[in-house]
Design a protein around this nucleic acid. Structure first.
Lengths: 225, 225
DNA sequence: TAAAATTAGGACCGTACGGTCCAATGCGCA
DNA sequence: TGCGCATTGGACCGTACGGTCCTAATTTTA
């Protein structure tokens, strides 16, 4: 992959995450990537659409590096990893001051109905994400209730996070995301075997500021039960 | 309010909820509302922006009629109303086959960053929505734990629903929303006083098909406790 | 019946968009 | 030296967009 290509992709990713795909013109991308003109751009990408697809993949890979990688850490208790992952999403959002949304959620809302090509690709991204969480839940299954539905729970986690990011953008208030993240952790804790963690959560209203706390308690409770 | 105006607003609402605001042209609206030409449109609206604002308000009012009205029903137990409301959101989404998203979430994702005028108005819509849920929770406070944070819980409910609708659109699968709705009910049940409802929820995995069930049990448990 | 509001229809404008084409210039590499 | 790729720069095209202006017919209302 040439230098210029990634340069263009980076510039496009920033612009698209700020203004959306439709509202980002090829000329904007050219300016952002400091290209000489359109022919320079079309030397690397055959269309704006193709650029969009590649940006989407690239965004996922970045997200995978920073967020999803946590879900795979083999040395940490799986449920603790899940909490760390939620913290990572919050942290990622903090960097843009709550202004920029999830790069997938944005595109999803903008293009899911209008553009089938994007819809399919975004669906695939969500599926890859969900499958990461599912396999983590599978790993944590000794600690969880027998009737926990990993498919449903993974979807719930993603939906809650996407919705939280959206509301955070609208309100321009990071505390919205922080609050929902903490509640989400409590919801997950609800699925942990025996009552210990379920009673516990009420003493951990400030779970957001103690991200490691809950998960450790989860492990303890599962060992106890 | 003249007949034509509402006709235009209806057509615009449909188009915008299908394609988004940016991708809906004034000419599209004119075709949709069967107007004779642009001058006819601009006779009623001074700009496309103004149209958008009014559509947003109108969408909220419709949503308020069908969905939010349930939250205010004085004769039904408040927590049961909350479950009925969640069912109503699912039903609303079913009508478009899961294709059309929440009219607010769509606009929020599309315009929150790009257009301050819309952002502020969408924020106001969410706030009105959240305040309805807050006052319901206030009404239900004898049944709830003392430490329930109504502001946070109302935000969580809205975020989860918005995220669920978004994912349903992307996957084109209504069962996603149904599953998340059921989980959301369980999350709410988690805030109910004493352990009865919390143990109960595990026997009500199919809460989605028994919307009245949980809430009735909530009332019972709160009476018992 | 006259004034006022609504409907109709079209020409027009400036701008922006995605995309094409072309000609010229560097540039490294065999 | 020559081949091929990267870069530069700009003209150009068709289309679509939001919005204005103007005239005339039709309907409503006082």
């Amino acid at each position: 992959m040439s230098d210029r290509r990634t340069q263009i992709l980076d510039a496009a990713a920033t612009l698209i995450s700020e203004r959306g795909f439709t509202s980002t013109s090829v000329d904007d991308v050219i300016k952002g990537a400091k290209l000489s003109g359109k022919s320079h751009f079309y030397h690397y990408f055959k269309s704006k659409e193709e650029l969009g697809y590649e940006v989407l993949n690239r965004q996922f890979e970045r997200f995978a590096e920073r967020g999803l990688a946590i879900l795979r850490e083999p040395m940490i208790d799986p449920l603790e990893r899940l909490n760390l992952f939620i913290d990572a999403v919050v942290a990622l959002q903090s960097e843009s001051g709550g202004r920029r949304g999830s790069p997938f959620g944005n595109l999803a809302a903008e293009l899911a109905d209008a553009h089938e090509g994007f819809r399919v690709r975004i669906e695939a991204v969500f599926e890859r994400w969900a499958s990461q969480i599912r396999s983590l839940l599978w790993e944590a299954r000794p600690q969880l209730h027998d009737d926990v539905d990993a498919v449903r729970l993974s979807r719930f986690i993603i939906a809650a996070l996407e919705g939280a990011v959206l509301m955070t953008r609208v309100k321009r208030d990071l505390s919205v995301l922080e609050g929902i993240a903490a509640d989400l952790k409590r919801f997950i804790a609800m699925h942990v075997r025996d009552g210990a963690a379920m009673q516990l959560h009420r003493h951990l209203e400030d779970a957001g500021s103690l991200p490691h706390g809950i998960a450790r308690n989860m492990s303890v409770s599962s060992v106890a039960g």
